[in-house]
Nucleic acid binder design. Sequence first.
DNA 1: CGGCAAACCTGCGAGC
DNA 2: TGCTCGCAGGTTTGCC
Length: 280
Amino acid sequence: MPELPEVETIRRGLAARLEGRRLRRVVQRRPDLRQAMPARLRERLEGRRVERLDRRAKYLLMRLDDGAVLILHLGMSGRLLIGGQTTAPPDRHDHLIFETDDGTVVRFNDARRFGLVDLSSEAELAGHKLFQGLGPEPLGNDFNGPVLAASLAGKATPIKAALLDQKVVAGLGNIYVAESLFWAGLSPKRLARTVQGERAERLAQAVRRVLGEAIDAGGSTLRDYVQASGELGYFQHRFAVYDRARQACPGCDCALARTDGIRRIVQAGRSTFYCPRRQR
DNA sequence: CGGCAAACCTGCGAGC
DNA sequence: TGCTCGCAGGTTTGCC
């Protein structure tokens, strides 16, 4: 569920409440997420001060004053919510709960348990298994048309699948791949290796613009996702193609044409939405 | 190595 | 009302 814009929105919401605060109380409930939570998590976190909240790809990094770094991933259904109680949580899917010295409570809630919580250190972070091979941050200075073209060169897979690959570029998921390919005018079925030169340039620009606008809108809420404050995201109202099968894409009469509007197909087991008229 | 389907787990909406 | 089915924003695994 949460892709880069949702994770970034949550990061900003949490940073405002957590940075500089001390973790007074940590409650671990179910440890069996995608991977088991680290042992003695409570002992290792309680009493620590939160220096900073950062993001790498779809991971949130909570940097603590003793050099420890808590790594959080939300999987498909994970949420981080401000508010609630550390004791007798109302929700059976609250797996980890923090309470700070000013009484702020943050709950990690994940019904499907595809998320994960891990603990590392500043020293070991760069070499951490989860970050090995991750591609560039799409909103950073290391991502542009030539970089993208180089990483797509020789790939026989459809461009849709290539963009979902976190080694190519970090942080995209099913929604923002669909939206980026639409704005770049590229068919999701096009072979990745053919996205070179001007096409790669257009795609890199589209990725950056779509992600930036989605962050400005607080992410996209389809079902589970909410910001840390509980507020919904708003970018779903601006989807060009995602979840809009048979409707018209922006500024196009495709819905009236033989193509019958935005098409839904399945690629690598996942829904793909695109306009066959505007995306080649 | 590359590419794809299936698996992980729970919840929800649609259809009967 | 209640059942079954399909589907969901991610990532890993195992198979060809």
